[in-house]
């Protein structure tokens, strides 16, 4: 085993939490084909020594990937890719792009400039994600847990 096909690199100015950057980099690598099922993710110790980040952060990212079903840890050996990301087919992607262009035209007509479009998109995406989280089994557990904590 030569090691992982990918290496991590952080963007310290992006504002995105470190563990999320790691998760995203793995997902992007999967989409772009750098990682295939069975490949090993970078060892915690190496990632930590290269990036000077907390090992618990790497562990958290790997746990997140496990929850998403993308990776699994083998004790004593490391963390390995389990499944690929489902990719939208090319026709689907073309359709999505067309719908988005139409929406952008509407937004421009309403008077939104690029920054405004970005802001609206970001907040709507967040709302969408939060609703999805609450609907998913894990999210429902989280809500139940918080209720218990809040009542205490």
């Amino acid at each position: 085993m030569a090691g992982s096909p990918i290496a991590f690199r952080l963007d310290p100015a992006s504002g995105v939490p470190t563990y999320l950057q790691l998760v995203q980099q793995v997902e992007h690598a999967l989409v772009l084909g750098y990682l295939k099922p069975g490949d090993q993710l970078p060892k915690v110790r190496e990632a930590v020594a290269d990036l000077a980040i907390n090992p618990n952060t790497v562990l958290k990212a790997y746990r997140e990937l496990e929850h998403k079903g993308l990776a699994s840890g083998r004790p004593g050996q490391g963390t390995f890719v389990q499944a690929g990301l489902s990719q939208a087919t090319l026709p689907e992607l073309a359709g999505l792009r067309r719908a988005l262009l139409e929406w952008l035209a509407d937004a421009e007509a309403a008077g939104l400039d690029a920054n405004a479009v970005s802001a609206v998109f970001a907040s709507t995406l967040r709302d969408f994600s939060e609703r999805r989280e609450a609907e998913s089994p894990r999210g429902a557990r989280k809500v139940r847990g918080r209720t218990a904590g809040g009542a205490a």
Binding site: P12, T18, A49, A52, I53
Partner: peptide, 28 residues
Amino acid sequence: MATVMAAMAEDGLSVILSSHGLAELERV
């Protein structure tokens, strides 16, 4: 800091570190 973190990853070391600066806090 890379050395400190690597030791944490390898040995299960706990670290207490004092600082009057806030830079890179989120990473470490």
